[in-house]
Amino acid sequence: MRFFEATHKYPFDWETVSLASFRKYPNDKTPHVQHVEVLNQEIDPETGVLKTERLIMVKQNAPRLMMKLLGGSDSSYVLEYSEVDPRDKTLTMHSTNLTFSNLLTVGEKIVYKPDPEDTKNSTLFAQSAKLSADGVLSRFSSYIEETCLKRFHDNALVGKLGLEQVLHKILAEKRQERGGAGNMAA
């Protein structure tokens, strides 16, 4: 079993970062994410919590030996559950792999929340993951876990770059809206 953790502080307000998280795909920084399908979405009328279930199709370059032995394709699927709590200002996302889950399970949790030191201008990001190849013969499980952990780490880095790209796009849209509204009033 392997564990991954990462934290980051985005110099953007929580609302903008949360919006960017849902608009993250597709983008050129994360070409491995091929498609995102919203399966279910509902708002709790009492709490205002938005719950979303998405299916994410990812193209991964799995080791050739593994693909030959298991007979899979280069596309894999991830199921993601998210909750946006507008009162507590938290976005929590849980995801797990569906493809080859009998051989390798990857459980990921991401939380976005305002930075307590600067709630209006900064958002904290916390990511954790557990990778386990328990279903594989023990002599191969360590190799598979290490290979997948490295790939997870690399994907996390490009995912951060992808989110930052979307954040800047949203900021540009906001500036354009303010500029457009100001021009209309003049």
Rank of each mutant, 00 (worst) to 15 (best):
K113G: 08
K109H: 07
M1H: 10
S82L: 03
E15M: 12
S128D: 08
V84A: 06
S101D: 15
H8F: 07
D154L: 05
M93N: 08
A20Q: 01
M67P: 02
D115H: 00
Y143A: 09
Y81R: 14
I144N: 03
H94G: 05
K68L: 07
I110F: 11
T92G: 12
Q165H: 10
I43C: 04
K130R: 12
K29F: 03
E46D: 12
L163W: 04
S128A: 09
S128F: 05
Q176E: 08
F3P: 09
L39E: 02
E53F: 00
N27A: 10
S21P: 10
Y81T: 02
N155M: 06
A181S: 07
K160M: 09
R2E: 06
S142F: 06
H32Q: 06
V166N: 03
S21D: 12
L70P: 08
L55T: 01
G72M: 14
G72D: 11
T123N: 00
T47H: 01
V111M: 15
G72I: 14
K59D: 14
T92P: 12
E164S: 09
E80Q: 03
D28P: 12
F4H: 04
K9W: 08
K68W: 05
N61E: 15
T96S: 15
S73A: 09
R139F: 14
P26A: 00
K29V: 01
D88C: 14
T119Q: 11
T90M: 11
P63C: 00
N121T: 02
K160A: 05
H8V: 11
R151M: 15
T96Q: 13
K130V: 13
A129I: 01
E117D: 07
G180Y: 15
P116T: 02
Y77A: 06
H8W: 14
Q34M: 15
R175G: 13
R151G: 14
S128C: 10
E108P: 08
K24P: 02
T47D: 03
H94N: 04
G159V: 05
Y112H: 04
E37R: 13
